[in-house]
Simulated scan of single mutants.
Amino acid sequence: MGRFIDAENFIKEIPVAPNDVLWRSLLSACRTHNNLELGKKATENLLELDPSDDSAHVLLSNMCATNGRWEDVEIIRRKMKSIDITKKPACSWVKMKNKVSSFGIGDRSHPQAVQIYEKLEDIKKLIKQAGYVADTSFALHDTDEEQKEHNLWSHSERLALAFGLINTPEGLPLKIFKNLRVCGDCHSVYKLLVGTLGEKLC
């Protein structure tokens, strides 16, 4: 569950000043294990080194959202806006032969958009039959539970997954890439598909 006391002691005891890589690694671990208080400390130290570090603001905002701290989320977003920091948009892509197909959240611009969203509905039904329950803590907007689950199903990595399953010939590997961290709920969807339903979907 994360050895945060050991991590803090290590940072305090190393003979050189901690750099941004160390603080960012700690902040990322805090995000994974939902340690908000230590995450705030790591963010403060990261921003002392680089006040324009967008990843520090975004990771802390995501932790606050996970914990329902929506006022804190709004404060962080206002601060980012005031110093002209924008979150890098999440993007997932699939390369087939010499063509790359990329997707953003809620993307409907692809020529196969109708088939992609139909495939997503098929995936959703199959994994729910296998026991999948959406973890809406990864839906980082203050909406009701139904809307949060809906938002999860428009994540770029799921769109890329559906596209890949439609277009990858049976027996060939499907490789999906993302420019940012994969959402935890999307990771669960992928694991469930690979572990129990992959053959039905390919």
Rank of each mutant, 00 (worst) to 15 (best):
residue 95 K to L: 13
residue 79 K to L: 15
residue 45 N to T: 04
residue 55 S to T: 10
residue 57 H to V: 04
residue 64 C to R: 04
residue 80 M to L: 04
residue 65 A to M: 09
residue 63 M to W: 07
residue 72 D to P: 01
residue 92 S to R: 05
residue 72 D to H: 07
residue 67 N to I: 08
residue 64 C to H: 13
residue 35 N to G: 08
residue 41 K to T: 11
residue 31 R to D: 14
residue 40 K to G: 07
residue 58 V to F: 01
residue 61 S to V: 09
residue 77 R to A: 04
residue 28 S to H: 11
residue 48 E to D: 07
residue 100 V to C: 12
residue 66 T to A: 15
residue 55 S to Y: 09
residue 32 T to L: 12
residue 73 V to H: 02
residue 96 M to D: 13
residue 28 S to I: 12
residue 83 I to Q: 11
residue 52 S to W: 12
residue 47 L to P: 00
residue 43 T to Y: 03
residue 38 L to I: 06
residue 95 K to S: 07
residue 68 G to Q: 13
residue 36 L to S: 06
residue 54 D to R: 11
residue 29 A to G: 11
residue 54 D to G: 06
residue 87 K to Y: 04
residue 41 K to M: 09
residue 70 W to L: 07
residue 98 N to M: 13
residue 70 W to K: 09
residue 32 T to D: 12
residue 55 S to P: 00
residue 95 K to R: 13
residue 83 I to N: 08
residue 62 N to F: 05
residue 38 L to F: 09
residue 46 L to W: 05
residue 63 M to N: 05
residue 71 E to R: 13
residue 98 N to S: 14
residue 34 N to I: 08
residue 75 I to L: 14
residue 81 K to A: 12
residue 28 S to E: 10
residue 85 I to Q: 03
residue 33 H to P: 06
residue 53 D to R: 01
residue 90 A to N: 15
residue 55 S to V: 14
residue 72 D to F: 03
residue 90 A to P: 09
residue 56 A to W: 01
residue 91 C to T: 11
residue 100 V to A: 12
residue 88 K to I: 13
residue 58 V to Y: 00
residue 91 C to F: 07
residue 68 G to S: 10
residue 42 A to H: 04
residue 32 T to N: 11
residue 52 S to G: 10
residue 54 D to F: 14
residue 47 L to C: 01
residue 43 T to E: 04
residue 86 T to Q: 15
residue 46 L to T: 01
residue 74 E to T: 09
residue 51 P to F: 10
residue 43 T to R: 02
residue 76 I to R: 00
